[in-house]
Every structure is written in C-alpha cells, then in structure tokens.
C-alpha cells in the first residue's frame, strides 16, 4: 500500500501546483485548500515552506475520533473518507496531530488518499509515493 510523502520540502518553491493538482484531479474543484496537500510558508516566504499532508498513521487518530466510521482506516496506514457516512462534525480534523485534514466552511473534510496524482506536478521533485510496510490485521476493506 502506497503513501504520499513530502520528503524534500526544503526544495519547495511555494508554487501550490501540488494542491491545485489534487483539488483539480481528485476533488474536481479549483482550490488551494480543498486538497489533500496544502502549502504554508513557515513564517513568511523568507523561511521556506511546509506541507500539510497526511502522515498515513497507523493506528489513525482521525479514524479513532470519527464517531460514524466515515474516516475509515486503510490497511497499512492513513484513511479513506466515506462521504455518505460523514456527519460533518469535524472531530477528525481536531484529532489529526499535523493539521492534515482541511475543513471547508460546511465542515467537509479533505484529506490525502495517497493516490500520487500530485507528484508529477511538483517541479522540484519534493513529493514521492512510497510503499508502506504491510500491517495486515483488522482493518478496512479497500
């Protein structure tokens, strides 16, 4: 099972191409927020950039916090968001230790599904798709 890693953020130029690609290709919107990865300057442009992106935790605190099972853990780490189960309580975003879940003003959560579609749009090769060590065990269905 794959996971997106922002492994080389010290190379980031802050172009937002990754966020725009995720929003466009995964969520079908024009946005730099409604995306699995979001770029913030670490205190003004002069100190570089950081990526807000899912770490693919296992166990996943966001899934544990979700009261309805809408944030469902993936087998080897990270989550799938099942829109039809989501009651928009925002608990997942609160639970995430790295602010990887974006809530829009209607409290819809946006989180990385580790598909890797943003990777090709990064001009500085900051992002990569890696293999997660297989966990096996109890979790989900995909």
């Amino acid at each position: 099972m794959k996971a997106l890693r922002a492994s080389r953020m010290e190379r980031c130029i802050g172009c937002h191409s990754c966020s725009l690609a995720c929003a466009r290709l995964v969520h079908k919107v024009l946005s730099w927020n409604k995306a699995g990865i979001r770029i913030a300057s670490a205190g003004g442009l002069s100190t570089g950039f950081e990526a807000r992106v899912c770490l693919a935790c296992s166990p996943a605190p966001c899934a544990q916090a979700c009261p309805t099972g809408a944030m469902a853990p993936r087998r080897d780490g990270g989550v799938m968001h099942k829109e039809n189960l989501c009651i928009r309580c925002g608990k997942c975003a609160e639970a995430c230790p790295v602010e990887a879940i974006f809530l829009d003003h209607e409290v819809n959560p946006y989180v990385c599904i580790h598909c890797g579609r943003c990777v090709a749009f990064c001009p500085h090769d900051c992002l990569e798709l890696v293999d997660l060590p297989a966990k096996g065990g109890e979790a989900a269905d995909d």
Binding site: I13, G14, H16, S17
Partner: peptide
C-alpha cells in the same frame, strides 16, 4: 528559488 502561487516555473 521561489514562485508565485500557481506558477511551476519559479
């Protein structure tokens, strides 16, 4: 290098 938002050229 740095870039304007929306510009991969940087």
């Amino acid at each position: 290098n740095a870039a304007c938002a929306g510009c991969p050229v940087g």
